[in-house]
Design a binder for these strands. Structure first.
Lengths: 165, 165
DNA sequence: CAGTATCCTGTCCGATACTG
DNA sequence: CAGTATCGGACAGGATACTG
């Protein structure tokens, strides 16, 4: 990534985008969650050019989202697995999935989340772990500038940009 | 957007990315949630070039995420507000925020979510609205191909790519 | 199998100037 | 205030050929 405009941005959303801002990065992560680990599986699944795949994979490794592991010594063979940081990206992916399903599915969803136990379709919603309340559209939550906010960010909130959620 | 590689993709994640794949799009949405509506407010807040802002805004309107509304007749003045589809994007933004806070905050979070009632910091987690269970890392959920899945997608799951969540 | 090496195109994005 | 017009650079991404 390393777009100049995003360097030094204190907003955690912008910081997240520095790591996964490219199209392929997110799609690669998606496939990684599906269990894909090998270079050529990613390539086949995504239909991505090999040089691009190398670049994105390298980026994800550098950002700490994936780990390149040798799974065979002679000949040397590598696989790519999600790190803890990468695994923590799952809620973003699932939210993206739910959003796409809801609004752009053209009649029917193409990918679903199922509860293994009940075998029912799950509906992912964001809730507050502390109070147990649903965060979205409840009007009971707000975004505030935290301790590490820089001046620009603080100003955004000071000028009244304080949407309740 | 309109990258060839993504056209016709049936995966809802890819479809979502068609709408918000660019860096600025997501940052614009973020600011829209903060309550920004006017062209020049977006520009100041983001530090984005005006031509780019025009393009991204136009894209978001075409994708149905934002609406361009005339709020003054003479002279004609416009503002940009989130549609229902755009508002539904909030969980993605909040997940991104939580992820960034957790892993790239350098000691302290710069933006936080607070419960208005209790004034406590909220911790957003994805849960299944049906069963009430936390989806992440519970191992009780899996992604499956839905009715609208195309062959490629179906094959992905048929070949054993069925990560439990 | 897991890439590297080249070459090429598109467009994202920035900077600046200008307008009703 | 809310943009349009124009220019230029960097790089994401595509296509193809090649390697241990």
């Amino acid at each position: 990534m390393e777009r100049k405009s995003f360097e030094g941005m204190q907003c955690p959303i912008a910081r997240s985008l520095e790591r996964v801002g490219e199209w392929w990065s997110i799609l690669i992560l998606r496939d990684a969650f599906y269990g894909i680990t090998r270079f050529d599986e990613f390539q086949k699944s995504l239909g991505i050019a090999p040089n691009m795949l190398t670049r994105r994979l390298k980026g994800l490794v550098e950002s700490g989202l994936m780990e390149r592991r040798e799974y065979n010594a002679r000949p040397p063979r590598y696989e790519y697995v999600l790190t803890k940081t990468g695994q923590d990206f799952r809620p973003v992916l699932l939210s993206l999935l739910a959003w796409g399903n809801k609004h752009f599915a053209e009649g029917a969803a193409s990918v679903l989340i199922k509860n293994i136990k009940t075998n029912k379709i799950a509906v992912p919603v964001l809730t507050d772990q502390v109070s147990g309340e649903e965060i979205i559209a409840s009007g009971k939550f707000k975004i505030v500038a935290g301790p590490a906010a820089d001046d620009k960010l603080r100003q955004r909130f000071a000028s009244g940009y304080e949407g309740t959620l």
